[in-house]
Amino acid sequence: MSALTNTVSDSLVITRRNLIKVKRVPDLIVFATLSPIMFVLLFRYVFGGAINLPDGITYAEFLLPGIFAQTVVFGSTTTGASIAEDLQKGLIDRFRSLPMSRSAVLIGRTVADLGLNAISIVVMALTGLLVGWRINSSVPEAIGGFLILLVFAFAVSWMMALVGLLVRTPEVVNNASFIVIFPLTFVANTFVPLESFPSVLRTFAEWNPVSTVVQAARNLFGNQPDSVPVADAWSLQNPVLYTLIWAAVILAVFVPLAVRAYLGTAKR
């Protein structure tokens, strides 16, 4: 067998192992989907009235792509906590003593978490449809919208994998990633239009990849009517391209770093 087929088959074994945990601990999936549902309902009904939107778009349509993005980015933080847990329980040592592919443990982890994120998105989309969100685009565009959310989340998972390998304590990994993820998802166009931001934050928000993944999703789901202007920043004018560049750069940097950290976990 070639190295590539070995990597693929080992990664599948690990992905399957990670998904079995989801099956055995249904709370995981319940809570992973419950909080986005709660977010949808809270923002739609509690804050929705207070947020000013230009004519031509309902808050539900504006909101859902933002919730999708926030949820999958948060969902990716579980990658770090799960890897830290495996480290603590000695499973990473077990895997490292086996003649398996060197990247399979991390691939299997990030792919399983991608699967969880896909499930969350489906649940949120269904909830969204109930509260007035609509897809106003073609089927391929809508699929593109879901894909770009998942691609970006997959890249974030690899960042979190590195955090998990370096921090090593699941609870700390969670807190550490929230410190990074909260500002990224809130200083963005996730819940409110960028026009309402003070200027410095606004520039940050315009170039924040979370804003652009949200914008890309809005465009692809047809939740951005022509009557509503988008900020002039190049990032927001070309959100799909800009987001994909970010995802590619994150993967190019963090995949090798995470694999190296994985191989060196015991050196300390």
Partner: peptide
């Protein structure tokens, strides 16, 4: 090789 480390390394969920 086969390795049994000092602390049991089994996957609890499997």
């Amino acid at each position: 090789i086969g390795l049994t480390g000092q602390y049991a390394a089994v996957d609890e969920y499997l």
